Computed example of a mutant assay.
Amino acid sequence: MPTPSITVRGLLLDMDGTLVNSDAVVARVWRGWATEQGLDPEEVLRVAHGRQGHLTMATVLPGRPVEQNLADNRALLAKETADLDGIVPVPGAPAFLAAVEPLPHALVTSADRGLSTARMGAARLRMPQIRITSEDVSASKPDPEGFLKGAAELGFAPAECAVFEDSGAGIAAGLAAGMPVVGIGPRAAAHSPTAHVPDLEAVRVEPLQDGRIRLSFHG
């Protein structure tokens, strides 16, 4: 979609699918869980991207006890944190993180602190100094709470921050927060982000003299 540029003051970065390609691990863990529950693994995976695990479970198994979902979620998180096979950076992620290092930015992820540390480390990516993880919010994406907290941590109004996201839940959260959203990768295109690019190689980050950040896109 043609959006020549977006100018903001802060950047809010999702992790899985945006900076880190963890699809192989996510597919392994969630296909196993779906099969155990007698569910269609592909249908569960369509829901799982970008959400906290217990919310995915509540969505695909409505009426299931919350305690059971939370217990299953703890078990799956342990599996995901231990399984780092196949985790790689999204194309352009190392250069993108280098470009934004001196600029106001934060990680906003549905992962917990342990999982985000493990995956960023496995992909050999720098962890942003500010990060909002599942421990910091009361509601998962598509609720905007995480992105609103990220903007507050950076000290900017929501509309002054751009979100980078790959999932439908994450894009919905960013838009609900009143922020422009840069959709990354093939999953993002169907969810009407403000701009869409195939990966981070297609994003140019330009600091402006007044302290703002201009994002431009190609590809």
Rank of each mutant, 00 (worst) to 15 (best):
P4V: 06
S5I: 08
S5F: 15
I6Q: 12
V8N: 12
G10K: 09
L11C: 06
L13W: 00
M15D: 00
M15A: 00
V20F: 03
N21P: 10
D23G: 02
V26L: 03
V26R: 02
A27Q: 14
R28D: 09
R31Y: 10
W33Y: 08
A34Y: 12
E36D: 13
L39R: 00
L39V: 07
E42P: 11
V44L: 08
V44R: 04
L45Y: 14
R46S: 08
T56I: 04
T56S: 01
A58H: 14
T59R: 14
V60R: 04
Q68I: 07
N69W: 12
L70V: 11
N73W: 03
R74Y: 02
A75M: 09
T81W: 00
I87Q: 00
V88D: 00
P91F: 12
P94H: 06
L97N: 05
L97P: 03
L97G: 04
V100T: 01
L103Y: 14
L103C: 02
P104S: 10
L107V: 03
T109N: 05
S110P: 04
S110I: 01
S110G: 13
D112H: 12
L115C: 04
S116C: 14
R119Q: 10
R119H: 10
L125E: 02
T133E: 05
T133M: 11
S134N: 08
S134K: 14
D136P: 07
S138N: 15
G146F: 09
F147R: 01
F147L: 06
E153S: 10
L154R: 05
A159M: 13
A159W: 05
A159P: 03
E160L: 13
C161H: 07
A162I: 06
A162V: 12
F164Y: 13
E165W: 15
A169P: 14
I171R: 03
A172Y: 11
A177T: 01
G178Y: 07
P180E: 06
V182I: 09
A188H: 07
A190K: 07
A190T: 10
H191A: 06
S192P: 06
T194M: 01
A195E: 01
H196Y: 10
P198C: 04
D199A: 10
V203S: 08
R204D: 14
E206I: 13
P207G: 09
D210R: 03
F217K: 06
G219S: 05
